[in-house]
């Protein structure tokens, strides 16, 4: 109270109003700054090559054309093939969905065990899993390649799923463990007295409680896996490459005139799924991150 009284500009209405305006202006400038690249990408992708050459980078298209989007989707060349992003986009879908689901499920299971079924060494195992979150991608490339070779999964989509699941378990376990430790342990005791076993308690009591943290984990894992480039480029071969690798190939392997409009359209297509996930589930993401204790 005394602090506020000692700073007169804040306590007067005009001072507060000015501060409010300053804040909004600043936020507005930042928003514009961050939206600028997206604006350039969208407008460029809607221009013809002719217009790009002659016009300004930040001008609106004089004539809107979706030609570049069509090319990016189904006609652009990645090396010698010219099928556009489409096959690789589906590779990414077929890769990301199982990888996200499996790693989320395993993380939920791990978190449930570590948080609610304490056993000797639980903390050690949790620390080791946590340590896994901080291992740089590059470090595991060679051992992982060897491993995939031994398992007969080298260069295949199941191989990539395997890699992403392994790499994701650290994070997903962390998320679920931190969520489940806030659930009173008496719940497990009550269920045990009721006769429910390990899996029954997980399915009937813990999983239905987990929607917020499932959303957080799914968004996190989907973004990680969809946007991954290093694993994608290292552990895939022609035909199994994810969309990020294909995008790189499109942008880098054009000869002659650089088709900026196609590159931009391809980049937007590649980014679209994560964008949609955030727009659809974004509010649950924030809620899930801040949600904790279960009342009841």
């Amino acid at each position: 109270m005394t602090d506020l009284a000692l700073s007169p500009p804040l306590s007067r209405p005009w001072g507060r109003l000015a501060l409010r305006w300053l804040l909004f202006t600043l936020l507005g400038v930042f928003a514009l700054f961050y939206l600028m690249p997206l604006f350039v990408m969208v407008t460029t992708s809607l221009k013809s090559l002719e217009e790009i050459r002659t016009g300004s980078l930040i001008a609106f298209p004089r004539e809107v054309t979706f030609e570049a989007w069509k090319t990016a989707w189904s006609g652009a060349c990645t090396g010698i093939q010219c099928e556009g992003l489409r096959p690789y986009f589906w590779n990414s879908v077929v890769l990301a969905i199982p990888a996200v689901l499996i790693s989320t499920f395993v993380g939920a299971m791990n978190g449930y065990v570590i948080a609610q079924w304490r056993f000797r060494g639980a903390n050690l195992i949790f620390s080791l899993l946590l340590f896994g979150c901080f291992i740089p991608f590059q470090v595991v490339l060679l051992p992982m390649a060897r491993m995939l070779g031994i398992l007969g999964l080298a260069g295949s989509i199941p191989g990539l799923i395997f890699v992403h699941v392994i790499y994701g378990i650290g994070f997903t376990t962390l998320f679920f463990r931190n969520y489940y430790v806030t659930i009173p342990s008496e719940l497990v005791k009550a269920a045990k007295v009721d006769g429910a076993g390990f899996f029954r308690i997980f399915w009937s009591i813990f999983l239905p409680l987990s929607l917020p943290i499932v959303v957080v984990t799914v968004i996190w894992q989907f973004t990680q896996i969809w946007n991954d480039f290093l694993f994608g480029v290292s552990f895939s071969q022609a035909g199994t490459q994810p969309v990020t690798v294909a995008l790189n190939n499109i942008v880098n392997s054009t000869t002659g005139v650089k088709e900026y409009n196609v590159d931009m359209a391809a980049a937007i297509i590649a980014a679209l799924p994560t964008l949609i996930v955030y727009v659809v589930a974004g509010k649950y993401f924030i809620r899930g991150l801040t949600a904790g204790s279960v009342k009841g």
Partner: peptide, 21 residues
């Protein structure tokens, strides 16, 4: 013997009701 086979029922301090049911 495990809790479920002891023929007991228990009421907890926090009630421990299943929140989603």
């Amino acid at each position: 013997v495990s809790p479920k086979d002891r023929d007991i029922a228990m009421v907890f301090q926090s009630y421990a009701l299943y929140p989603t049911m």
